[in-house]
Structures are given as C-alpha cells and as structure tokens.
Design a protein around this nucleic acid. Structure first.
Lengths: 201, 201
DNA sequence: CGACACATGTAACACGTTACATGATTTG
DNA sequence: CAAATCATGTAACGTGTTACATGTGTCG
C-alpha cells in the first residue's frame, strides 16, 4: 500500500502523467527503491478502479494526466493521520531466519550472524557515503530534504540491526539450554568497531 | 519468501504436518506475526510444486506429513548462507510517508511525526512488557531464545524509529528552502524521555 | 449438547514485480 | 544514423492474506 499512497500524494500537488510520477517518486526516495515505470501505470489503473484518481485530459504533447478525486483526497488525509502500524509490523525475514537458525539443529548460527553483519555493515557504509553526497549536492529543495530523511532512516535502521546482531552473539554465548536466562550483565557487548551509540550525525 | 523458508527450516527437523508447523512457527515468532493456518497449506502446496518438500505418508491418526527433499535442503542451506539483502531493502511505508509529507504542500509534517511517535512509543512499551514476560516464563528451551531474540529485534528497530522521528523534527526545524543544510550541530536532539542511547538491556 | 481445539483444504484477491511490446523524440 | 530518453501500456507471475467450507474429537 505504500506505492499507491505515494503516487496519490504526488498527484495531490496537481495533475500528473505516469512517467512524470515515476521521476518525482524517485527524486524523493532516491536510487534506494527504484520504481519500475510499468508499475506506475498498473498502480494508476488500480487507483482509478478504486475511484481515488481519475483521468484528467490530455496534453498538447499527448501526455495523459490523472487527478485526485475527492475520495482520493480523503484517503490521503486519512493516510497521513493514521500512523503506520508498529504493533503488528510486517514479517522481517532476518528475524525469522535467526529464529529458525537458533532452533533447528545443524545450523551454524554464529556464521549466519557474522555473514549478515558483514553485509549490513557494508550497506551502512554505502548509505553513509550516499548521505555525504546528498549533503553536498543539496540545493535546499524539499526533494533533497525528503531524500536525506529517507537515507537517514536507512542508516538508523541498519545501525540498529547491527547492534542487534552483536546482541544476538552475546545472547548466544550466554544462553544455555536448561539454564533459563537471567538478563546478562549489560557489558560493553564487545567489538568496539562499528557504529557506536547514536549515529555520527 | 520468509514463510516459505521458515516452514522449510521447520521441516528440516523432520517430517511434520500442516497444523503442527503453524504451532511451531508461532512458538518461535510469538504472537507478533500470527500465521493463518490456511497459509501453511497454500505455502506447503507451493513448496511441493517447486520440489522442495514432498508428502511423507500418513499418521495412524490421519495426519498428512511432509518432508524436505534434497533440493529443499540445498535451498535451505543457501538461505542460511546468503545474508538478507540490505542494500535494497523492502520499501518502508513510514519512510515514504514522511518523504511525501515533507514534499507535498498542505501536510502538517510535525503532526504526522508526533502521531507516529506516540504510536511507536506505545508499541515499544508493549514489546518491552512482552519481553519481561518472556524472560519470566523462560524454560531455557531454544524456542524461548528464538522468541526472545525476535522480540529484541523489534525493540531495537522501534527504538531506532523513534530516534529517527526525533531526528526528523530537528531536521525540519533547521532545514529552510533556499538554505542548503550543513549538518546541524549534534545537539542532544531534545526530549529526554523515550529510549536513551542503547536499550535498557 | 455446545463450544472449542484440532486438522485439512480451497477460492479469491491484493499488491508488487518483471518482462515484453511499441512508438515518438531527442541527442551525440 | 544509432543510441538513449521519453512515454504508455499489457500479460503474467509470486507471495501473502483472508474468508470460507468441512469434519473429528474432546471437555465442561
């Protein structure tokens, strides 16, 4: 439901045509989530089917415009007002993988954690580099702010993931079958490399 | 692809039947991601279609067992070896929403952030409470460890989200159209309530 | 007896995603 | 001229998800 609403929000600025929407969408979310053009049209079709947008005539140059309907505006308002549910978040593949790795015998959990950690660490570096670039090419436009915020969300998220992975290691070291875990002492959780406490903002 | 692999992993412990899989799955991921029983059967069907599992006879009591095939075991090994891609993570609805809120005129961004913050904060409290319970009822079984790790991932993630939301507020206060942002001073990012630095593990 | 857990399944749909087809226009 | 960008669309598929149908056994 994110693309639907994203496009709807863009259309709220005024009538747009498909190709344009893709460009504006990517200007805000950057190269992180490339949006297949085809999907814009399919989504536009579904939005029209649901009465949230409607065709809005043609350009001199043949561009097919769409505009938000009243229902669409209502839907949009409701989207902005209602928080994204975090009490029942989407299944996270990594969490499931770890949960399974810990449970089924014959899996080298430590290896899984390490492998993921290396990968996430790499991703974090990429994001940080991108952020540097974003801060450089910043023109002060709202698009740039949006793109920056998205990037920073990815950074925060990835840092949290890495911390969690480290935490898993200590848990694995502490946890023994048969000995119910009391909270392990809040030790320095080892490995001083990697992101320290809050991000280097 | 997470449920597929999750079930595959469970089947790696030995032949199981549908209903059983659901129970074992939920024992690990807790009430967080309730798994509709129907979905177990559809997924099982698709796994069989792809040759990763195969029917494995019937019980005296009529239970229909499935077992992993060699291809299934290979697939599973590959799943555990390959990190979950974090360079192109799944679209996050919140990120998109904020990106749009910042860009389209007439949206009270601060209100959106606040509303989400309240919600995420509430979710965090729920998770923390659940974790307390989990630590109590802990029997030292691997299931409990898995469930605990999943919970903690949710906690880490939610904390990161809240920190990011706070960060957005400061960004919004600093960022002015026309004045390209230099990194705002790493001030204490206001609001001393909420999760402080690393979690209260 | 009625409610509830156990147990298996199907039908239908939504969304996201990719691959493909097609053509106009611009640009090196 | 060839390649790239602009522009619109369709067909097909995959997973996840819900709602429904159905039946057995058990427990109060």
């Amino acid at each position: 439901m994110s693309i639907r609403h994203g496009l709807l929000a863009l259309l709220d600025q005024g009538p747009r045509y498909g190709y344009q929407l893709r460009i504006e969408f990517e200007a805000r979310t950057g190269a992180t989530w490339p949006l297949n053009v085809g999907q814009v049209y399919t989504t536009l079709g579904r939005l029209e089917r649901d009465g949230l947008v409607a065709p809005h005539g043609e350009d001199e140059e043949g561009h097919l415009f769409y505009a938000v309907t009243d229902a669409g505006r209502a839907e949009l308002r409701s989207w902005f007002e209602t928080p994204v549910p975090r009490n029942s978040p989407p299944r996270d593949e990594l969490a499931i993988k770890l949960a399974m790795a810990v449970t089924v015998p014959g899996v080298d959990v430590a290896a899984v954690v390490q492998s993921q950690r290396r990968h996430s660490m790499k991703a974090l570096q990429d994001y940080t580099r991108l952020k540097g670039q974003a801060l450089n090419g910043d023109t002060g436009r709202q698009d740039d702010l949006a793109w920056l915020l998205v990037l920073e969300q990815l950074i925060f998220q990835t840092e949290a993931e890495i911390r969690w992975l480290d935490h898993c290691e200590t848990r694995l070291a502490t946890y023994r079958p048969g000995s119910p875990s009391s909270e392990p002492a809040p030790s320095a959780e080892r490995r001083s490399a990697g992101p320290k406490r809050r991000s280097q903002l």
